[in-house]
Every structure is written in C-alpha cells, then in structure tokens.
C-alpha cells in the first residue's frame, strides 16, 4: 500500500431500532479529536429522529421487559464479551476522542467491560434487594417487586465518552427498560461504535437507540415527549437542566438530576442508577389452605 493512499473519512450514523439510519434531516457535523484534528463526521439528529427512536424504544420495551431477568443478564454479559472482542478499536477511539494516552484509554475500556459484567450480574438479583415480602394482617402473601419504568431518555455524560455512556445505559436496560440515548456531543464516536457492538450481541433492536447531535436541539423534544417515561439528565449542562425538568413535568416523568459534582466514572458503582428507573408493584395473593 502506498503512503499517498487517500484516507477513508467515515460518516457515523444513528442507531434506531436495531438499524443504522442517517438523520432524517440529512445533516452531519464534524467530530474533532482532543487535539483539534479531524476524526470523522457524525449524524446530527433532528426532532423526527427523536420521534422515531421513541417509537422504536416503545416497541422493543414490552418484549425486553418480558424476557426473564436471567436472560437479560446473559444478554448484558454478551455485550461485555463483544466489547472485549473489539477492545483495540475502542482504545483507539477513546484515546483520540478524550486525549488520554493509550494506557489510560485501555484502562477506561477495561472498566467499561467490567461495568457491563457488574450490571449483568445484577439482572436477577435486583428484585431480591429492591423487592420484599411484606407482613400483612390477614391470610395473604404481600409482595413488592421492582418493574421497569418503560422508555428512558438518557443524556450521556459529555466527558467520559465510553465508560460514562456504559455506566448510564447498562443500569437502565438491565432492569428491562428501553432507552433513547443522546451521546456526548463532542465525543460521540465510541458511543456509535458501541451501538454496533449492541447490534451484534443479542440485545433486541430498539432497546438502546443512540442519537448524536446537539443536546440543546434534541433534549427539549425528548423531555417533552409524552411517550418517554423517565429522563436521566446526567450529561445535561447546568443551564439546560431546569428547562428540561419543566418540560418533563408536563407528562410527569421520573427525572434523575445530573450529579452535583463531576463524577469519576472509574469509581465502583452502586445500585442507585438501576433503582432510579424501576417502579415498585405490590401484589396481594391469598395464602390458600
């Protein structure tokens, strides 16, 4: 191969319903490396892409929630396997996008794989921690069980393009939610590549829909969308949070506010994020004879 070969400039696409469409608007934007050099083009999602993504998520959510917890755990573990397979590609992407050295990027990718394995283990255990058998004054069993909230809109962290993204998406899907994720605006590429991993890892199409583009543009549409049940504002800049919370209030969504201080995503997680997007259902059942 000669040295003057022309480089292939990739244009990344969106991930909606298990497919990889361009933005309905046809727009793209340039993604730059941490050092300012050209990396690739990414699709710039419009409000209609948000609409399509929510339709796909709604369609996928029922079946995903109906899968057994054990099965969901296996699928999330499978994502970890597939991510591990493509480790080199992700290390390169994180290195270029986040401006860290290869060693640090490798640690971030490893942490992302471990994070998936950690949440995969939680799939069939979360009901034991968050659920309960309640003592009642009568001949009844009384159980409380966590059930998925439904469709969750997620603004992924802006800085941590892979580990941060995995750390907010995995806890939402492992309990049976479907998600519409807006990737980091300036560092969207590891996210789109992750969507390619998801498409080949048994995860039903539509459980994770990934949009790239301007959060200022698509955030309000997602927040106001009546068919979105919950909102994770993790990656939303402070000046936009109040507006999105007000829009979300129109349809009484659950809202997880962004952390007060910047998080170090390498820290050991807690079940907090999983439990933010479950609803407790309590059932009474006659004891019988």
């Amino acid at each position: 191969m000669s040295d003057d070969r022309i480089g292939v400039r990739k244009t990344y696409k969106l991930a909606i319903g298990g497919a990889f469409p361009r933005s309905e608007s046809g727009r793209t934007y340039v993604v730059r490396a941490a050092d300012g050099g050209f990396l690739a083009n990414a699709a710039r999602a419009s409000r209609k892409d948000v609409r399509d993504a929510v339709v796909a998520a709604r369609k996928a959510q029922v079946g995903w929630a109906a899968a057994t917890a054990y099965n969901r755990g296996q699928v999330v573990y499978r994502i970890a396997e597939m991510l591990e397979d493509r480790r080199a590609q992700f290390v390169e992407a994180v290195e270029a996008g986040e401006g860290v050295d290869a060693r640090a990027a490798g640690a971030l990718v490893d942490a992302a794989v471990d994070r998936l394995v950690w949440y995969a283990g939680w799939a069939d255990k979360v009901a034991q921690v968050a659920g309960s058998s309640n003592p009642v004054a009568g001949p009844y069993f009384n159980f409380s069980l966590p059930e998925p909230t439904g469709v969750v809109g997620i603004a992924a962290p802006q800085e941590s393009s892979l580990l941060g993204l995995v750390s907010v998406v995995a806890p939402a899907i492992v309990t049976g939610n479907a998600t519409v994720v807006v990737a980091s605006e300036l560092r969207p590429l590891p996210g789109v590549t992750l969507a390619e991993v998801l498409a080949t890892s048994d995860l039903p199409g539509g459980v994770v829909n990934l949009l790239t583009g301007s959060l200022v543009e698509v955030g309000p549409v997602l927040a106001a969308h009546r068919d979105v049940d919950a909102l994770d504002l993790c990656g939303v800049p402070a000046e936009l949070v109040t507006e999105l919370e007000q829009l979300a209030a129109g349809s009484v969504k659950r809202v997880l506010r962004p952390p007060a201080a910047a998080l170090d995503w390498r820290e050991r997680p807690t079940p907090h994020r999983m439990l933010a997007f479950v609803e407790t259902k309590t059932v009474w059942h006659p004891v019988g004879v």
Partner: peptide, 9 residues
C-alpha cells in the same frame, strides 16, 4: 401542543 404524544393516552 408541539409535543409528541403517547398512544396510551
């Protein structure tokens, strides 16, 4: 209303 709607409504 300007907001996308929910089929269940």
């Amino acid at each position: 209303t300007g907001a996308y709607v929910r089929a269940d409504d």
